[in-house]
Design a protein around this nucleic acid. Structure first.
Lengths: 194, 194, 194, 194
DNA sequence: GATGAATGAGTTTTCATTCAT
DNA sequence: AATGAATGAAAACTCATTCAT
């Protein structure tokens, strides 16, 4: 009834956030456009006004998420320089991604979406993963031995983050990221850098 | 025309396999009962004769998968005893799970299902993960130092397996599980066992 | 509530007829699947059971219509042989097509569908028209001068049929197909046959 | 940004032309107001400023088209007087209507609209057709025998024009309007005029 | 004059489930 | 044991229309 008019710039983030929240709660496939609309107190028609298809909405959420991930890794590298203890630095990184409520969790749901038919999104992830791995490598060299090759470790960290994220979403509580970080940073990688 | 009559015991594994195959190809949520029925060359009605609901089918697939995972870890422990090199043993474990066509991949899709509303399944995973972690710990002690505490490493391996499974499903090709295994087994875990 | 079970062979013609009837009344685009279902007293789900999309239904209606048209022209040729007066024969042909309630009228609506985006259907018509023209030519030679070239006349007759069909659907009442037929058969086409 | 302000008299023809163009491309029913607005580079809101409803826009397009048709037939009659050969005159008339890009083609689409629910438009066509027939009759008497009754021929020509227009829109290429015109003008209509 | 934002009613489509035979 | 037929609820999507600014 009472039409609540907003500017595009105000509405879009609202939609992204509301949709992400629901998708994290119920999964991307189980979140209907009707759910999102009613969560936001708008009509399905309004949703369509901003996103002509569910795929478009997911695309936008994805792009923003991927950017966000990249930014987070970036700022992590920055902060890494200032800190002394490698394991603390790594723990910080993992916790930021794994523990954050909506923002971190959407990651897994977008991967699911990519795995179950969304080819475009799958390719985006395939593009980003190596990039993130490279960035993490760079960060590791800053806090650890700058002459060693951390490419494998970086990949391992990425995989572990995804794995712990899954376990976290499933409800596992008995894993200490601090312990894991200490383990990972006590590795002895080969000296020769690629 | 010629209705292919089979005993219950013959039909059930057929259904499990066909359904698993499709769910791995398209995801659990995107696999309809009609898809499964036509894949098997039977009618939807027949499917319901064996499984009163889609949830029941998924439940059965899950139980068999969980059993399968446990068995695999068991046999891995057995084989571990015979081998000398820890990294080889670990690599073997990871490759078995991550690379296997249907069997391994269904794991991720069942986790997805658990994450997106299937509470029963979620609890089953929550029960199994610590169990698997304990089993992996046991296996690690056999091939590495029997007096050290491998609880954190075991958790890390489990997470890494899930993480690499995801990346593998996304299509990543540039990760060497051999390298990763060598890294993980070069750790220096604390001596005092919990 | 009371499920009315029928065999496929009984249901399909019912759907074709009911759908054709509505499409003639309101046009193809203005006939919704809900309309068709309620006209037939079945659910939308049942309609989907027989035709997985509106396009499939239209395709089936079209194919049956095109066959029907061809058959009618065929039987017209047969009957032509027996009759003496050309104009009567032609009038008969035009009246059969133009005046029949549903069967004839669906023709125009299918052409509309073909004109507004249904490329597959458009090509079907493009295939059939020359074929029909050839058949009509054949029929004309039987009742008129067998040594003359009736290719242009056949095309003209086809066009006139469509044109009068349109006018008939619009509600025109003041055209005598008898008069028109007498005109068309008083032509003097060239002797040399192509 | 820079809102292009125009006078009503400048905007209306623009809308008519743009809308007609799209309706010829996709059919009246398949052309949405959003399509039209974006074709014109204006907003949907602006469209509604000029036409309070889609029906009003179609009405206006129709009126202008009907006028146009009448005008064309008028000028055809005028030109007829100057020419000697009847078949050439007729061919000219048919080609003008059938071959013109937008202007001629909109005719069929408006008939479709009339046939599928637009009663007002249907009545307009019902009014115009006899009028056009009378005009064509008049034209025929000028170039052919002024004492004969061309009422049936005029109706036939009108029907043939619609029929060939349909075939032309479907993509038929193998009909020569010259041949057809020669046929139609070689008729021997009755001497007694109604 | 012009527009961006919002809406609701209606459309096609999907699919797990039921059940008479 | 097996199945074809039927269903209803819910999903995504379309679009003419309204209206505050």
């Amino acid at each position: 009834m009472a039409r609540q008019r907003k500017k595009r710039e105000a509405r879009i983030p609202e939609i992204i956030d509301g949709a992400s929240k629901l998708m994290v709660e119920k999964g991307v496939a189980n979140t209907s456009l009707a759910d999102i609309a009613s969560e936001l107190g708008i009509s399905k028609g309004t949703l369509f006004y901003y996103y002509p298809s569910k795929a478009d909405l997911i695309f936008d959420i994805s792009e923003r998420h991927l950017e966000h991930m990249t930014e987070r890794i970036f700022s992590w590298i920055d902060e890494s320089g200032a800190t002394k203890e490698p394991s603390k630095v790594l723990q910080m990184a993992m916790e930021t991604i794994i523990s954050s409520e909506t923002r971190g969790h959407i990651h897994v749901y977008l991967i699911q979406e990519a795995l179950t038919g969304n080819e475009q999104l799958r390719h985006r992830f395939l593009e980003e993963y190596p990039e993130w791995a490279r960035m993490i490598e760079e960060g590791l060299r800053r806090v650890m031995d700058p002459d060693r090759d951390y490419s494998v470790l970086a990949r391992l960290i990425l995989a572990a983050i995804d794995g712990f994220l899954l376990q976290n979403l499933l409800g596992t509580t008995d894993v200490s990221l601090g312990d894991v970080s200490r383990y990972l940073t006590s590795l002895e990688p080969p000296v020769s850098r690629a």
